[in-house]
Each structure stands twice: as structure tokens, then as C-alpha cells.
Amino acid sequence: MQIIEGAGRWTSPGEAANDWVEHLRVPNLSVGTYCIPAGGLDTQSPHTEDEIYVVTAGRATIKTPTGTAEVAPGAVIFVPAGEEHRFEDVTEDLALLVVFGPLYGSLTLPS
């Protein structure tokens, strides 16, 4: 058992546009926090792993090829591996608890 301190907690990105902090990395999954300040832009690219987002603070809109939804604290979002996705219209500082399965960066997209 392990308590993951700070996971999902808002942290100001400082000089960076956004902030990604990985809290746990084991062979089958990784857990981290992704923060985007109000008015900020989400610059991430599709990931090679399945992903779960849990909104812990803030408000925004998530856009994917399959739909658009407003999200707020408590929202849980599944994004399959390889799917384009972006958080837009960030109206309040956004903090996301992120779970990747398998481990973030462990797979490659087919060529």
C-alpha cells in the first residue's frame, strides 16, 4: 500500500504554461497531476496509453473527435489510447488527477 501525497492537487505552473507531475510509476500504470491555469492552453498530444482524468478543481471543456463536454470537480473522463483530446475554455484553474494504463510512455503508436 502507498499513499500518493499531492495527487490531484492544484499547483501553479509558474513559468511553464502547464504543469505535469508524475507521482507514481509502476510497470502497469502511472498516476500524476496535470494543471492548466485559467485562460491557459492545453498543448498535449495523444498518448499511446489509455487514460483516465478525474477533475479535482476548476472548470473547462474537453474536446475530442467524438464529442465535447463541460467538466468540473468530480467529473471522470476516459480517453482511449491515440485519441486526440484537448481541454479548452479553462475558466477556473484546472487540476486533473491522471491515471495511465499501462505506464505512461511505455507503448508506441503503430507506424
Rank of each mutant, 00 (worst) to 15 (best):
W20N: 08
E51A: 01
A95V: 03
E5N: 12
T33L: 01
R86H: 08
A17T: 09
E83H: 08
E88V: 15
D50E: 08
R86L: 11
Q44D: 13
R86C: 14
V71M: 04
I4G: 07
T91C: 13
A38I: 05
G74E: 12
P80G: 07
G58E: 06
T33P: 02
I3P: 14
G58P: 03
P13K: 04
D89V: 09
E70V: 14
A81F: 12
G67T: 02
A95E: 07
T43A: 15
L107F: 14
H47G: 01
L24M: 07
P73T: 01
G40C: 09
I4Y: 05
F78S: 02
V26T: 09
I3V: 12
T61Q: 13
I62C: 01
R25P: 10
I62F: 00
S30T: 02
E83C: 10
V21S: 12
I62E: 00
P65M: 00
P37F: 06
L107T: 12
E5K: 11
P37V: 08
V76I: 13
A17W: 06
P65Y: 00
T91E: 12
V71Q: 03
E22L: 01
A69V: 08
E49T: 05
G58T: 08
I62N: 00
A7E: 11
V31L: 02
A57T: 09
A7K: 09
A75P: 08
P27C: 08
A95C: 03
H85W: 04
P65F: 03
T56I: 05
P110C: 09
G67K: 00
G67N: 00
G58F: 04
V26Q: 08
V71K: 04
G8A: 10
Q2S: 04
T56G: 06
R25M: 05
A75G: 13
T61Y: 10
T48H: 05
S30W: 01
E15H: 00
A60N: 12
G58C: 07
T66W: 06
V55S: 04
L96W: 03
E49M: 02
W10V: 04
G39I: 02
D42Y: 10
Q44K: 00
V99I: 14
Y104S: 15
V98F: 03
S12G: 14
N28G: 15
L109A: 15
H47M: 02
I4H: 05
L96A: 08
W10S: 07
P27R: 11
T56L: 06
A72W: 05
Q44T: 10
C35L: 08
T56Y: 03
Y53E: 06
D93C: 03
E49P: 01
Y53V: 05
G32E: 02
L94Y: 07
N18M: 14
G32C: 03
T61V: 15
V99E: 04
T56P: 08
Y34I: 01
V71D: 04
P13E: 10
I4V: 13
E49L: 01
S106N: 08
W20G: 06
P13T: 09
E15K: 04
T64A: 09
A17L: 11
P13R: 07
V79K: 01
I52F: 11
E49D: 01
G14C: 05
A16Y: 11
I52H: 04
L24H: 12
A57I: 07
G74Q: 11
P27F: 07
G40H: 06
T66Q: 11
A72P: 09
R86V: 12
W10Y: 09
M1S: 13
V98L: 03
V54N: 07
G74L: 10
I3K: 13
